[in-house]
Each structure stands twice: as C-alpha cells, then as structure tokens.
Design a protein around this nucleic acid. Structure first.
Lengths: 343, 343
DNA sequence: AAAAAATGTGCAAACGTTTGCACTCTTTAA
DNA sequence: TTAAAGAGTGCAAACGTTTGCACATTTTTT
C-alpha cells in the first residue's frame, strides 16, 4: 500500500501540514521534527502523489509537445523529433513532465485542444504545420502559453516561434561556394512559395549581391519533389546556363538526383560542379561524393523552444517574438572547399 | 474562469453527483435532466478537470515512454523513435496520454523511478538499453505494468518484451540471396556477443543449412564499427574466401564501407558480389548501387508494444512473454534479385 | 394486488495534498 | 522591561471529481 502524508504525520505524531511543509520547505520547522519526518518517510517509502499536488496547486507541471501526424516524411519527422530529446531535457531540468500528442482528432475533439481544455498541460510546443486559426484563437483567448516550431505564413501578434535561420543558411552556402572558388551558384528549391524557401532565396540573393555577383531570378530553379522533374531541370541548367558552376539543393534527396544526373552528363564533382545541400541525413557523408551540407543543430532548436515556453509560462516577456538558430557548413567532398575546412 | 461540475449543477438545479453521472454515463438519468445538463455544459464551456479525476480514480490515464538518453546514435534513436508515433496513436485511441522521459537522473532520483513512485503513469515502455536490475526489481515488486523494447540479455520471468525478429531477418536475407542466384553468403556483424547479432547469426546459419550450403564459423565476420577495420575485413574476404559471392551487413553504414572497398577492389555490385544490409536508412535507396535491405516495420513494433502494455494494465495475461515483428526484404540494385521482386 | 426490480436523484465522504489563519513560545529590538 | 518579530506547529477548508448508500417513485414481475 502506498503511504500518504497522513501516515507519516500519524507515525511521527505531528499534523499533516507539518509534513507537507517539511517536504516543500515552505515554513521553518525544528530540526528535530524534520529529522523524524525524513526518517519516517524513508521507513515508509513515502513518495508524494503528483495528482493530489496538481489538483491543489492548479498546475500540472507538464508541458505538451505536438507531433505532426500528417507528415510522414521520415526525415522531416526525424528533424523535428531530434529536438524532442532537447525539449525533454529542459523540461525535466525544470521539474516538469513532457506529454506528447499528435495533432489528430481523438473522438470528436481535437487532441491538442483536449490537452488544454482538460487541464493536462501548462504550456504547449507545436510544429507550424499543425497551427490552425481556430487553435491559435483558442490559445490566445485562454492566454495559454505556446511556442511554434517553424515560421508561420502569417504572423499574429501573440505568437512566438523558433526556427532554423534559413536566410542565414542561404547566405552561408553561397559564401562557402565563393570562398571555395566557385563563381556562379544556382539554387534548387522545391517550391518557391514556401516560407522557408523564400528565406533561403533571400539569403542566397543577398550574399550573391554582397559578393558582387549579378543574379537575376534566373539563378533560382523550382524543381519540385519528383525525380523526373529534377533531372529535367538539371539538363536545362547544363544546356542553357553553361556558366553555372555550383548548385545549392534544398535537401539531400534533391542533391542526390542532381548529382546522379550530373555524373551521367559527364560532369565531375566537385571539379566541374560544386554541390551543397540543406539538411544532413545520416547517410549524406556516405554519398558519392560525400555531400557538403548546411546543417542545423536541432538540439539547440528544441532547447530554445522549450526555454522560451518556460519564460512565457513564468510571464517573463521575451522581446523577440521569433528566435532563429544559425546553420553551419559541414564541408565534405561535393565542393572543393577551402583546404583548412576539408574534413 | 474555468467552470466546474458544481457550477453546472447549480445552474441546472441538480446535485453535482448527477452531473458527474451524466458525464460518465454511470447511472440512468432522465433525458430531461440530461439535456439540461448538456446544454449548461455547452453554455458554460465546461471541460472536466483531469487532475481531479485522476486523484479520485487513483489512475493517471497516462503511460510513460522512456527514451534512451545515452544512445546518441542518430539512427538507432530514429529507429526507436519512429515507433513513438505508433505508441502515441494507440495510447490516444485508448483515451490515455503519453508521457516521455529520458532515462537519466533528475536531481538525485532516477527519472523513470520517479515516474512510477510519484504516480505519474500507469504503465511504462522502455528500451532494453535502459533496463537495470534495480529498475526491474522495482517494477516487479510494485507489480507495475511494463514492456521492454528489445531483447534482454538475461530474462526474468516477469518481463514482457517486443523486438524485431532478428533470427527471421537472418534467414530472410540468406533466402533472398540464394533465390537470387548467390551461392556463398557471408555475414558481417559488428559484435558477435550482442543479443540481436546472435539471433541474426542463428538465422543465417539455419537458413544456410536448410539450403544445403555448408557453413562453418568462418562465414561470419566480426567487423567492429570502425571504417579501417571493416575495410581490412573486406580485403581479407577478398583474398582468403574467394568463394564468397555475397555479404550480409549488419547495418547500412557497414554496407557502405564494404561496397566502397569492393568497388575499389574492382568488384562489380551486384554482378560479382551481392550486398544486403539490415536497417533502412532514408538514403539507402540513393546509395550506389541502391541498397537491398532487411527492413522492419517500426510502426507495427510500437503498436505491438503499446497494445501489450495495455493488456497487462488490464490484467489480461498474454501467454507469450516475447513478441517478434517479422522483417521484410526491400530489394534494390545491390543484389541481383529475382526479376519480379526488382523495384 | 403485492412484491420485486428498475429508474432517477441527493447526501456526504473520500482521494492526498497545500495553505491561510491562529496560536504559543522564544528571541530580538527599543 | 515591554513590544515587536520570528520560530514552530495545528486546525480546517479547499482543489474538482467520483461513488456508496439511501430513498422515493415508477415499472415490471408473479
């Protein structure tokens, strides 16, 4: 049988409130009493009951993390999920628990709303893909603390979000290429309209400008997600943009198809064409050639999200509504690289 | 302000217990009263308070999932983590919540023990890598429901576990190779002593035997995890085991190094040497040649773990203490494959 | 037509904590 | 030396539910 605070009190011969105060250190208690209580707790293997605590405290000491049910793409899930570990650690360090839910509906109710309305969590972290107008409205109207992972399309004035710095990533990729002796980079994006692609494009263009390389819209190619289409675009580049000597791909898969087709066309990598890609799949270093990538520290990303959430929960206002984590280059063999960077 | 069951009762003019019974359907209530209560609940935006429920029910309606803090290997984490989605879904379908914790220590207490002792969860799923004797002892002594993911070294008689069927995976790989026209497969494992490697070896040998191919210990190579070592082993095979025409690698990384070295040695894949690997990294299909793999459905694995846990929680005895998920072949270009399997 | 069962509802205790108030006794400040 | 402050503890209410018992009314069974 589980022992309660009353059992301890009875055994020691004090009032339950005294035991509670010893446990929480909320009042000064004589050392003598304290000792007896601690000993009784040890003897009776006492552990506080979280549920009772939560009820009376009106706080769950739990935060919710929403995982995107719809998005089955193994990696983008993994990308998000690798920050889970960070979020979990921060949560635990603060004495909180981490509850996970998908964004789907259970019964007739939205799972996330359920979390909030039934008082299961004190705050929530959710991926931008799961943000709906109704959900935001609910969160805001209840003044419920939340942090979004990823940049929203349109910004309300209440929402805080964290993301990788795609603009900086775009700049970094160009910078690396220029420094490595390439002169005419091209950018392959899947879909120009996506928020993160827009930012990458912006960084790309900005850095080209800074480097004094002229660049019109024509240096950006929308290649979609389909292998055939990517291949077609590669050939277009090969025939129509003969000056192009390097390609920045929006992810590892695109890079793979690009490299494949370039090799087929007799191009040597990195000599004839340098390749950089966003993301860093576990096997990227084993591609041929090993892929130079723009990587992001997802641990830091998760950590940041969690810390901001806790600040909001404590009513500590952060002045910045958005927080970005800078990317870094991992230089491998698909670009010439500067000698000192070569790994 | 949040409305409570008492507010509803007052508004409708009934006793709180009546409202409770309507919500839970635990007694027959007149339709008239029911309707009035439902309406009041809607009007006042009532949602039950989980904490109070949990306290009185003595149940948390929450299960805990332990993620391995120590294991930072991106993929093996991803492997485990991709079953999270399944566990989450099962949990939600059953009206439960999912709490995540790492296995580390918070303050002076083991995080998992804390979960159990402080009554935060009703059951727990944990990876075999986090199983310690003390933890098992605690779980067993409290009769606390748990399921282990992965096969334990030594088996207590109280523990239930799920895992991929490594023995069947070993058999499957051999079977595929034989059917594809290879005659002398070799198995590259990282460490013979590991439980799952042992099982793979067993399946490997058994299937060879069934196929009438004689095979001593010599067909199994322990190649460690280091690139140099793997390369050395490949060359050893090339020189000393000239009859070998195919290699089964214990994971994608080993396969990569093996392929790399074989190509360097002038071997064509799959013509001169067939390669099969366990696991299916997101980029495996983009290797050169695309890698034929023994894959496991991690979603099913998670689902199984969760369902068994719920059975245990409901005191439904499963007769089998271990449950295995069979693997399947994904045939790509690194083996000749049978035509009809080729994808 | 009487007995038994079912329906519908209220009362109050219980779940295991925390905490405001009150009180006594000691210590410190003026 | 008296007043104020602090230390140490108890009492009882509160958090928001659920549920066993009780009871009245209706319906069903014999």
């Amino acid at each position: 049988m589980k022992s309660t605070i009353k059992d301890i009190a009875r055994k020691v011969g004090v009032n339950p409130s005294t035991v509670s105060r010893v446990i929480n250190g909320t009042a000064s208690i004589s050392n003598e009493t304290k000792e007896k209580i601690y000993e009784a707790m040890r003897e009776m293997d006492y552990h506080p009951n979280s549920q009772a605590r939560r009820l009376v405290n009106g706080s769950t000491f739990t935060i919710g993390l929403v995982i995107d049910a719809g998005n089955s793409d193994a990696y983008s899930n993994a990308f998000f999920i690798s920050s889970v570990s960070a979020i979990e650690r921060v949560t635990q360090d603060r004495g909180y628990n981490l509850l996970i839910t998908n964004s789907g509906n259970c019964q007739n109710q939205n799972a996330v709303e359920n979390l909030i309305l039934e008082n299961k969590v004190d705050g929530v972290i959710l991926p931008v893909s799961d943000v709906t107008d109704e959900l935001i409205e609910l969160l805001v109207s209840k003044e419920f603390p939340f942090v979004i992972m990823g940049e929203p399309e349109k910004e309300l004035n209440q929402d805080y979000w964290v993301d990788m710095n795609n603009e900086q990533g775009g700049r970094l990729a160009v910078q690396h290429l220029i420094q490595s002796g390439y002169h005419c980079p091209m950018l392959f994006v899947e879909d120009k309209a996506t928020v993160f692609e827009k930012n990458r494009i912006q960084g790309f263009q900005k850095q080209l400008e800074l480097s004094g390389i002229e660049c019109g819209e024509s240096n950006i190619v929308e290649c979609g997600t389909d292998a055939e289409q990517i291949i077609a675009k590669v050939n277009m580049v090969l025939h129509d943009f003969t000056k192009v000597d390097s390609i920045i791909c929006t992810n590892n898969i695109v890079a793979f198809h690009v490299i494949q087709e370039l090799k087929k066309g007799g191009k040597r990598i990195p000599e004839d064409m340098g390749i950089v890609a966003f993301d860093n799949y576990p096997l990227a270093e084993y591609m041929e050639p090993p892929l130079t990538v723009v990587d992001v520290n997802t641990y830091k990303l998760g950590e940041l999200a969690a810390n901001i959430l806790f600040d909001k929960m404590k009513q500590i206002r952060k002045d910045d509504k958005k927080s970005l984590i800078d990317t870094q280059m991992i230089v491998r063999k698909s670009t010439r690289g500067r000698k000192e960077e070569r790994q």
